[in-house]
Amino acid sequence: MRHIYYFVGSTLLVGATYALVGCDRAGSAPSVSSSTTEASVSGTVSIKGKPATKGEVTFDPSNSSRRDAGARTAPIGPDGSYKVVTLVGGNIVRVSTPETTKDSVLQFNETTLDVQSGENKLDIVLPKP
C-alpha cells in the first residue's frame, strides 16, 4: 500500500513541477492580446526528418485577456501539411501524432507563434534542432 502512496506522490510532484516551470516555450511566454481578429497559419510538420502523415496541430490563443478563446485544431495531411485559422497574437502550438505519443522526448513539443493578420507560415520540425 505504501508503494501506491509513493507513486501517487511522485506523480503529483512531477505534475506540479511541469505546471510551475512550464514546458519549452522558446524562452518566453506568448504575447498577450485581446484581439478577436482571425488569421490563417499553414505549414508542414516533420518528425525525425520525415513528413508527419497523420495527427493534428493545435493552436491555443487563450491568455489572461481572452480566457474563453478556444484552441483551434487542424489535421495533418498525408504530405505533412496543415492549415488552421486562429486568433491574431500569441498562440501556443502543440503537435500530436502517433510518433509523438509514443516518444517521451517528442510528447512535450510546445512552441509559440505570434500570429500576425493575414497569412502566416510555420513549419514545425521535431525534435527541435
Results as ranks from 00 to 15, higher is better:
residue 1 M to L: 13
residue 1 M to H: 14
residue 2 R to W: 13
residue 2 R to Y: 15
residue 2 R to K: 15
residue 4 I to S: 13
residue 5 Y to V: 04
residue 5 Y to C: 00
residue 6 Y to F: 14
residue 6 Y to H: 14
residue 9 G to E: 06
residue 10 S to Y: 11
residue 11 T to V: 15
residue 12 L to I: 14
residue 14 V to C: 11
residue 16 A to F: 12
residue 16 A to H: 03
residue 16 A to K: 00
residue 19 A to F: 13
residue 20 L to K: 05
residue 23 C to Q: 12
residue 24 D to I: 08
residue 26 A to S: 13
residue 26 A to M: 09
residue 26 A to I: 05
residue 27 G to C: 05
residue 32 V to K: 12
residue 33 S to N: 06
residue 34 S to I: 06
residue 36 T to K: 01
residue 36 T to A: 05
residue 36 T to D: 12
residue 36 T to P: 00
residue 37 T to L: 07
residue 38 E to N: 12
residue 39 A to V: 07
residue 39 A to D: 04
residue 39 A to R: 02
residue 41 V to F: 01
residue 41 V to I: 09
residue 41 V to C: 01
residue 42 S to K: 02
residue 44 T to D: 02
residue 46 S to E: 15
residue 48 K to M: 08
residue 49 G to E: 11
residue 50 K to N: 14
residue 51 P to G: 07
residue 53 T to E: 11
residue 53 T to Q: 07
residue 55 G to Q: 04
residue 56 E to C: 10
residue 57 V to Q: 02
residue 57 V to C: 08
residue 57 V to P: 02
residue 58 T to A: 14
residue 58 T to I: 13
residue 58 T to D: 08
residue 59 F to S: 02
residue 60 D to T: 12
residue 71 A to H: 09
residue 71 A to P: 12
residue 71 A to M: 11
residue 71 A to L: 11
residue 72 R to G: 03
residue 73 T to C: 06
residue 77 G to Y: 01
residue 79 D to Q: 04
residue 80 G to Q: 02
residue 83 K to N: 03
residue 84 V to D: 00
residue 84 V to R: 00
residue 86 T to E: 01
residue 86 T to H: 02
residue 86 T to V: 05
residue 88 V to C: 03
residue 89 G to E: 10
residue 90 G to Y: 05
residue 90 G to L: 06
residue 94 R to S: 14
residue 95 V to A: 08
residue 96 S to I: 12
residue 98 P to Y: 06
residue 99 E to Y: 04
residue 100 T to E: 04
residue 100 T to M: 11
residue 100 T to N: 08
residue 101 T to H: 04
residue 103 D to Y: 04
residue 104 S to R: 14
residue 107 Q to I: 09
residue 108 F to Q: 05
residue 109 N to K: 07
residue 110 E to D: 10
residue 110 E to G: 01
residue 113 L to H: 05
residue 115 V to S: 00
residue 115 V to D: 00
residue 120 N to P: 04
residue 120 N to R: 04
residue 121 K to E: 07
residue 122 L to H: 03
residue 123 D to G: 08
residue 125 V to T: 15
residue 125 V to I: 14
residue 126 L to E: 13
residue 126 L to C: 12
